[in-house]
Design a protein around this nucleic acid. Structure first.
Lengths: 215, 215
DNA sequence: TCTATAATTAACTAACCAGTTAATTAGTTA
DNA sequence: TAACTAATTAACTGGTTAGTTAATTATAGA
């Protein structure tokens, strides 16, 4: 009920909605995210959501576009700093890991979508995801041509990277809880830092794709 | 509206509900699964759902229990036939893959839960998941002690297996679609069989954990 | 200062949803 | 067959949801 203090500012209002929507969708999922609650969180009238994004699906697509473009940008930009396939691969994995751990809504939103073959937004997610995958494939191919990587099934290796990193993020609280119980003693990597996890995933992937193995 | 033909049979009705609920929850997710639709699909009165399972969450827990016990049983039973860590690991991966591909609701339900740190059913999923993970850890540990596996971070390797296999199942239709487009040529493993994928994941995991690498 | 337009609002609707209730039917047993 | 119980039903409720509408503000340009 708090009266708006700020002046009118379309782009700012729009951004407020997106920002809170990213959080809300990643916390509750598409179906359980309520537009009433979003309006409350954003401290804006609900009609504004529909004024700017037409409907819930439109908002969700805008959210996914934002998030996917952001990670894509990070990886592509970081990639420029390297020029051997090995370095590029390392950069890809480290950058994704860093982003995923500092922006945990990304793994949450991504896994929610992928657990349902792109239930809500097939088309767009799809294109953006494919571009990232295409870069990954390109790195692998150039590594192969250079003779430093062996031939692998890129899709499987890609999911080994993304699937693992995403799950390590989304299960963080679950793994912490598991480590505190002591009926079964298992190491759930509960206190590993994102850098440790990234380094570990990277090491494993290198063992999979490198031709000469330094044991 | 079709009048029930069958005689009254409590266990059968209950099983009808579970069976259709597994399908519905895996297709739509917890929030979007409607009890009205479930009743329609099961060809039973909606009140029966609440008569047998108290509420929606109770039904969901019953569904997850059913599904998790089923996969657990498969893996444990198959495991009995082997007695070296290498064979056991191979059996674990192959059995999970086979089950996941023939019962695609499992990856869908699992990823939905894990994308949200066990949003709906923390406790139970948790215990069942941990038992499976404990078996995996045990296999790795015995392999280590025998000197045939190197020391690894079990949680990460576990997610490399489950995460990858689950994603390969849930994204199947998406990968098929991607392979049919030809703006970017990428191999999405669209026509790989479940055995091929299992073999490929297994091969990669072996490269990660085996001490002597047969190049 | 007038005016056109963009941004914002409160109040509303129609559909849907989980869950309840009270009555009814079919099997079972004494 | 009478009486008891378990299974089943139709009809309902209260709350929530996405989306709409028509009126109202603020702002910028002429």
């Amino acid at each position: 009920m708090s009266k708006r203090i700020q002046k009118r500012d379309a782009t700012l209002s729009k951004q407020r909605i997106i920002t809170h929507a990213v959080e809300l969708f990643s916390q509750k999922g598409y179906a359980s995210a309520s537009m009433d609650e979003l309006a409350r969180r954003s401290d804006l009238n609900k009609a504004m959501v529909f004024y700017y994004f037409k409907n819930k699906k439109g908002l969700y697509e805008a959210v996914m576009r934002e998030v996917l473009l952001e990670i894509q940008k990070s990886i592509l930009e970081e990639n420029k700093n390297y020029n051997t396939p090995q370095e590029e691969l390392e950069s890809f994995i480290r950058t994704y890991a860093k982003f995923a751990f500092t922006h945990p809504y990304l793994p949450s939103l991504l896994l929610k979508e992928l657990s349902d073959s792109g239930a809500v937004i097939h088309e767009m997610l799809f294109i953006s995801m494919r571009q990232l995958f295409a870069l990954f494939c390109d790195i692998l191919k150039r590594g192969e041509e250079k003779g430093c990587f062996r031939e692998v099934q890129p899709m499987v290796v890609y999911f080994m990277v993304l699937g693992t990193l995403n799950l390590m993020v989304t299960t963080h609280s679950l793994r912490l809880k598991a480590s505190q119980l002591d009926d079964i003693k298992v190491d759930t990597c509960a206190n590993c830092s994102s850098e440790e996890i990234a380094a570990y995933v990277l090491d494993n992937i290198e063992r999979i794709i490198h031709k000469e193995i330094s044991q």
